[in-house]
Design a protein around this nucleic acid. Structure first.
Length: 756
DNA sequence: TGACCCTACATTTTT
DNA sequence: TGTAGGGTCA
């Protein structure tokens, strides 16, 4: 039996209205996931819908995983057959089974943004245009917007959004598409449009899927683009059991193609839709909810919800005016240490900023105060050079037409095939309309035909070795040899490992470690996947880079979280700091002068930031901030003005006496500080003692997890002894001597080590 | 081919 | 101010 008692009346409706179109507008913290999970569980258990007939689409793998886990917890049956997946993974899977309809082969490669950019660059290069004349990014933006709108070459668009031959970059688009096709590859956007194309051209295929998926759910609906909307529309055209859940006030990805009209116009497409609003907030204090509502109400493009909560009134929001960005960072460090001493665990605190660059200053201050922190986001494991190199080897094994992968590794390690030779080969490939691989293979096999391509005997023999190696690896893959075995063979027999090892600097060491961790990732995949194939592994990491290596936004014990507001969506913390609440910072200067639409998105962002906080919200800003090498005096954010005065207290920090500015801002509606507001604090807190309140958390806290002498077990290398250790927290590195005598260095945050 | 210097540039990044 | 990417030189 599914328990509905713990749901409020609207949530219950959202669960029980299983048939026909339903749109759930779920405010921040309104129990959205709980409702969705209950709805799916209800369909499975009470309405006897088979798992196979259900489809739930999300944006992130994290959301998909969370939902699956929670459903598994809720129902008694096996949820293995449930399709709870991201849009992209869903499309990829569908396309692999229907690939032949579109002239793709099922082993197609998925290109990420970096690879798309590389293609755009090579197209420019081919035309002899420098990246200064045309920014490849502009071409990609054009291509991306077409795909976001659901356009594929030749498609007749109902109401605009398609390509026109007169478009500046139309030629590039066509070439880009044919380049992808030649490489047997699709980009992220192409995964969606290819399915649209498939469904439009082959109605019988569409109808198969329409019949199969009786119930379809879409999470984070406000983030769907038009292409995704059309996909849903087609998929649900027959059964019409479509349930979307979203919040127009949390639409913060319009610049990625999210189309807020999908929410605002849902009723036009599904006139009989049942609209349900989840307006009760279970997360935040009354103060925070009221403040956030007052801000978001200034937006015009919304359906309008009225958030309320039964939670206590709570503390006033603390608005903190700092002298400069450095003081702001120090305040965060001091205040968080103070909260910690008062019993708030660091993992319950978070700092949200508008742009990544703001993190550095805060990191510095936290480090100085010896407070552990984690920055969510940043360089992805799979974007590191050595990882991309090895992945290119693996990709080439799976898809020989993947010329991008091939050109990346053909000379890594050096095989004498420099830029010039590669260019010659590429030209030949384009001219004979075949892939780079085919050309190289032909040259190796019967050089006679390609006498016009001048390559030294030495190059030819190393190319021949290369071809042999890849072909051998391919045979291993076809014979279902374990991916990890193939990887290790590729790593060593290609000479890549020796090539890296030749360097002895610290960076190289880190790279070798990363390669070890890649091996670790592959073995983990082998352990968890039902059918652990190499291509399966590659797909997983392209579509879900969020593996063990990057625990994403999950708060870690003892660490305060730092992230952009975008990264904060969907999370909650008891204590939150929204920093840099200044004009031109938050809202961003780019939005300040690009009109009301952009400003409304900034406001939604601010709203998202505010509604992450459960108990206490701090909003900080600096009088002066170093921006682009200059100190700027922007004045407090307009969004601060939109919060009713009675909900906040305003604290002005005394910075360093010697270099204070006069406290007035020119212009704006900024009111000189009301001293009475400061009375909220005890007098000794009004003047913040920046230096005296340096954090002193318990010492054990910063000790390395694996100090020298620890006996540990590594999941791959077995037992060992920590010989040396440096750093702590995310920076901790250890050298381990294993029982077999081998010594290895690891970054603790990556390595699968536990105390023995 | 790598190391270094210079200069241009500077939101957000679920897939 | 920080840095990534391009250009240049050894």
């Amino acid at each position: 039996m599914i328990k509905l008692d713990s749901l409020n009346p609207v949530q219950k409706q959202a669960v029980l209205n299983t048939d026909g179109p339903v749109m759930i507008l779920a405010g921040a913290g309104s129990g959205k996931t709980k409702t969705l999970v209950t709805r799916i569980s209800y369909l499975l258990e009470e309405k006897n819908v088979s798992a196979h007939q259900l489809l739930a689409l999300t944006f992130s793998n994290k959301a998909a995983r969370e939902m699956r886990e929670r459903i598994a917890h809720e129902v008694s049956m096996d949820v293995g057959a449930l399709q709870i997946t991201t849009f992209h993974a869903f499309c990829a899977k569908l396309l692999r089974s229907e690939a032949n309809y579109l002239g793709l082969s099922r082993n197609f490669t998925i290109y990420d943004e970096g690879e798309s950019k590389a293609i755009a660059k090579s197209l420019l290069e081919r035309r002899g245009i420098s990246t200064k004349e045309i920014n490849p990014y502009d071409i990609l933006t054009y291509i991306d917007s077409l795909k976001n709108n659901g356009y594929y070459p030749g498609r007749v668009m109902q109401d605009g959004g398609g390509a026109e031959p007169s478009d500046e970059f139309f030629g590039y688009f066509e070439e880009y598409e044919s380049e992808l096709h030649r490489a047997n590859a699709l980009d992220f956007g192409g995964l969606i449009t290819a399915v649209i194309q498939l469904f439009e051209k082959f109605p019988d295929v569409l109808s198969r899927y329409q019949n199969r998926f009786v119930y379809v759910l879409v999470d984070e609906y406000q983030d769907t683009n038009r292409a995704q909307f059309e996909l849903i529309k087609m998929l649900c055209g027959k059964r019409r059991n479509i349930c979307v859940v979203g919040d127009e006030d949390q639409s913060i990805y319009s610049w990625r193609g999210a189309d807020i009209r999908n929410i605002l116009d849902f009723e036009k497409v599904w006139p009989d839709v049942k609209v349900l609003k989840l307006e009760q907030n279970y997360r935040s204090s009354k103060t925070i909810i009221e403040a956030a509502s007052c801000v978001i109400e200034k937006n015009t493009m919304r359906k309008g919800k009225h958030m309320w909560t039964d939670n206590p009134e709570g503390d006033a929001i603390e608005i903190v005016e700092c002298f400069n960005d450095k003081d702001e960072a120090e305040f965060i460090a001091n205040e968080s240490a103070k909260l910690y001493r008062a019993g708030v665990p660091y993992k319950e605190m978070a700092v949200f900023y508008r742009s990544n660059a703001q993190a550095r200053q805060i990191e510095d201050a936290l480090r100085k105060s010896k407070i552990n922190y984690r920055v969510v986001g940043g360089v992805k494991f799979y974007e590191r050079k050595e990882i991309k190199d090895m992945l290119s080897y693996l990709r080439l094994i799976i898809n020989s037409k993947d010329s991008l992968a091939l050109s990346r590794i053909i000379n890594v390690p050096a095989r004498g095939v420099g830029a010039t030779s590669l260019r010659k080969l590429e030209v030949e490939a384009v001219n004979s309309n075949t892939s780079l691989w085919d050309i190289i293979e032909k040259i190796v096999d019967h050089a006679g035909e390609f006498a016009h391509i001048k390559l030294s005997a030495k190059i030819k023999s190393s190319l021949s070795e290369f071809v042999t190696l890849i072909n051998e690896l391919r045979v291993l893959d076809q014979n279902k040899v374990k991916p990890s075995t193939i990887y290790e063979k590729a790593l060593h027999e290609s000479g890549y490992y020796a090539f890296l090892k030749a360097n002895k600097d610290y960076e190289t060491l880190a790279r070798l470690e990363n390669l070890d961790e890649l091996l670790n990732a592959i073995t983990q995949f082998e352990d968890s996947a039902e059918v652990p194939t190499l291509s399966g592994f590659l797909e997983t990491i392209t579509l879900d880079s969020n593996t063990e290596f990057d625990e994403g936004a999950r708060a870690v014990d003892g660490e305060i979280s730092l992230m952009t507001v975008h990264g904060a969506k969907g999370l909650e913390f008891t204590h939150a700091f929204v920093v840099g609440a200044e004009e031109n910072v938050f809202p961003s200067y780019r939005s300040v002068d690009s009109g009301e639409i952009a400003m409304e998105e900034e406001r939604r962002l601010f709203y998202v930031a505010m509604t992450r906080a459960m108990i206490k919200l701090y909003i900080t800003f600096a009088q002066g901030r170093m921006l682009f090498g200059q100190v700027k005096f922007n004045g407090p954010s307009r969004f601060i003005d939109e919060i009713p005065e009675k909900l906040y207290s305003w604290k002005k920090l005394k910075g360093h006496q010697e270099d204070r500015y006069d406290n007035s801002f020119s212009g704006g509606n900024y009111d000189p500080y009301d001293q009475s507001q400061e009375s909220y604090y005890d007098s000794d807190e009004v003047v913040y003692q920046v230096k005296e309140t340096a954090a002193q958390p318990p010492k054990t806290y910063h000790q390395p997890k694996f100090p020298k002498g620890s006996k540990v077990v590594h999941s791959l290398y077995g037992a060992g002894l920590v010989e040396s250790s440096e750093g702590a927290g995310a920076e901790e590195k250890v050298q381990i001597k294993f029982t077999d005598g081998n010594r290895k260095k690891f970054m603790v945050k990556f390595a699968p080590i536990v105390l023995a």
